[in-house]
Design a binder for these strands. Structure first.
Length: 578
RNA sequence: CGGGGCGUGGCUCAGCUUGGCUAGAGCGCUGCGUUCGGGACGCAGAGGCCGCCGGUUCAAAUCCGGCCGCCCCGACCA
């Protein structure tokens, strides 16, 4: 495809790690001359980096087109009035970058484009016959992240593919959702990722059906729980594992409820110090929040954390924290002494939600709702007044799989590179994107939206594939396919063969980089490995026997190949994906 | 936003505690020469408002105050 000569190319590689880079991908992208930081979470993309980006985007674009998508380009600056129509001008909060123009009109820099695309078609799509419609763009997004991190992994200005679909009814929307799911799998398979598709929380964007695509890597910022035996995998907040039926109190006699003094006890650990029997799994943790203006106590085993995301999502309510003063007024005790025994005596407006893991449990400990006292011998169904049973705990590894019931959940770290949502009519209703149905009535279109972090993909690929020497690109997105390394550019034979090979491979569709710099061989070797080109041809002493040395970056193996065989040898290797 | 740290040639850092004369190192860069299969060597050089503003002092990279920027941990987050 093209031949690039390094002496005419801008490839500022570095010997030393940058001082501000924590993870491998960030370090290597800077060292390999792919990116440079302008400001916190804001990066310039250099020629080598942009080559990788272009290849990633190509794959994404091909698969989006295959799935019926139509590429568009939507404005980055978006007027306040539009965002007010969906209520997100206030909901999105400080994460949206905002500014005013010279007339004092307010704008936001688009973190996502539901409003713009919906508004765009609202007036012009009038009939169910026009559906489905799938639009996508690959463009720069802005989010004022609380804490930008890890180079392009979490930056404030980044590139993303976002797609939006419009449908006449729910079935059609679901069908497109499935199509996108397939397209996403094809994309991540083609790139060569080791990834998991997981059930995801839908969060503030709304809707009911959602999956994330997580590239598995130690440095991932998200926790994924996946089944050891089947395909089940979920974002940790979304996961609903099955708890073991064997409790620590199994086999013990059921004790009576007994109040006892616990001066100064405020935490699970404090109680354990007073009574060594009160291990965390035997304590009932009581956490309180406001739900629709009603104080609510959530009960869960003491060795678990509360899962606010899941509670909010499954009950469809907003949950808000309470101040210590509000808690005392509602419960008559401070947070360290809360408990659900006789709660109705303290207040009749309080409701109690208990985690499923507490079913049938007994001989437990909990706060007495009176500062300085706790109960022991608590039997959940006998002593506590529960209004609702549901999952309020954050699932942990080791819980049973809810799908196959034979496997266990294990935790892995993941980098979120894709997220798909079934949206429903949240935006189409707000923005009056309505169509006439087959029966002649008017109704809002059903929507879906689908994102892929195209710049983040680059970092994820490096996290998943690098070594001490540098990056090891998968063939699918490597900036070049072949690195031609003549030991000495002064050597006439080496120069002549380099040029000939470069032209030949270029004509065969390869992207070729020729290291024609007048630097020592070691520099060339090191740079070629740092930037991670899949194949390297070294032209040196063996050229006297009409041979070149082939290095396969991914395996580190080298072999001497006769000049006349090199084209076939590379074709062979590419075909078998090495 | 809370806690911690940092800011000195292009890069990575020392110097600051205990103020003192021309502000240093390695890498990188320029020129010449020697090298030429794993980040070569010699010689000669260029390059710094020590983040910014103010204060203390005979004297500030160094001490004090304010501001700006960057990083880490946490909270938070389609």
């Amino acid at each position: 495809m093209s031949e690039v000569y390094l002496s005419n190319y801008y490839l500022p590689t570095r010997k030393e790690d940058p001082a501000d880079a924590e993870v491998s991908s960030h370090r290597l992208m800077v060292r390999a001359g792919m990116i440079r930081k302008l400001s916190s979470g804001v990066y310039s993309m250099l020629p080598l980096g942009l080559r990788v980006q272009a290849r990633v985007n190509n794959i994404v674009r091909e698969e989006m087109n295959r799935a019926g998508g139509m590429e568009v380009r939507l404005p980055i600056m978006q007027p306040r009035s539009l965002w007010e129509q969906t209520g997100r001008w206030s909901v999105y909060g400080p994460e949206m970058m905002r500014f005013k123009d010279r007339k004092d009109a307010e704008y936001g820099l688009g973190p996502t484009h539901e409003e713009v695309i919906t508004d765009l078609i609202a007036d012009e799509v009038d009939s169910y016959r026009d559906c489905p419609l799938i639009f996508y763009q690959i463009a720069t997004k802005f989010r004022d992240e609380i804490r930008p991190r890890f180079g392009v992994m979490r930056s404030r200005e980044f590139e993303m593919k976002d797609a939006y679909s419009f449908h006449a009814d729910e079935d059609e929307a679901r069908e497109t959702y499935r199509k996108m799911e397939t397209a996403y799998r094809r994309i991540f398979d083609r790139i060569g990722f080791n990834y998991r598709q997981v059930e995801a929380a839908t969060g503030a964007i709304g809707g009911s059906l959602s999956h994330e695509f997580m590239v598995l890597a130690e440095t991932g910022e998200d926790a994924v729980l996946s089944c050891t035996d089947c395909d089940y995998a979920a974002n940790r907040e979304k996961a609903s594992g099955l708890v073991s039926e064997s409790h620590p109190e199994a086999g013990e006699d059921v004790k009576e409820l007994e109040e006892f003094p616990t001066p100064g006890v405020e935490t699970i650990e404090d109680l354990l110090e007073i009574d060594p029997e009160a291990s965390p799994e035997r304590q009932v943790k009581t956490m309180v929040y406001m739900i629709d203006g009603r104080p609510t106590a959530f009960l869960l085993p003491g060795d678990y954390d509360l899962n606010e995301t899941k509670i909010a999502e499954e009950s469809g309510v907003e949950i808000e924290g309470m101040s210590p003063g509000e808690i005392y007024d509602a419960f008559g005790a401070h947070p360290g002494s809360l408990g659900a025994v006789n709660l109705s005596e303290a207040s009749n407006e309080v409701q109690v939600w208990a985690d499923l893991a507490l079913k049938e449990r007994y001989n437990l400990y909990t706060g007495a709702n009176r500062d300085g006292y706790h109960y022991r011998g608590v039997k959940v169904e006998r002593d506590l007044e529960i209004d609702r049973w549901c999952q309020v705990r954050l699932s942990k590894p080791g819980e049973g799989c809810p799908h196959c019931e034979s496997g266990q959940l294990e935790e892995q770290r993941g980098i979120e590179v894709g997220h798909i949502f079934y949206l429903g009519d949240k935006y189409s209703s707000a923005l009056k994107a309505e169509i006439t149905t087959a029966t002649g009535s008017s109704q809002p279109m059903i929507m879906g939206c689908y994102g892929i972090g195209t710049s983040r993909i680059i970092a994820a690929a490096i996290e998943q594939s690098h070594d001490e020497q540098g990056i090891i690109w998968p063939q699918s997105i490597a900036p070049f396919d072949l690195y031609i390394l003549p030991i000495s550019w002064q050597d006439e034979r080496q120069r002549e063969v380099s040029e000939r090979l470069a032209e030949k491979f270029s004509n065969l569709g390869y992207e070729v980089l020729v290291d024609d710099r007048d630097v020592s061989a070691g520099v060339k070797f090191n740079d070629s490995e740092l930037i991670g080109i899949p194949y390297r041809l070294t032209l040196g002493r063996s050229l006297e026997n009409d041979e070149v040395e082939l290095l396969i970056r991914s395996t580190g193996e080298t072999e001497e190949v006769p000049l006349e065989d090199i084209v076939d040898r590379l074709k062979e290797l590419k075909a078998q994906g090495e």
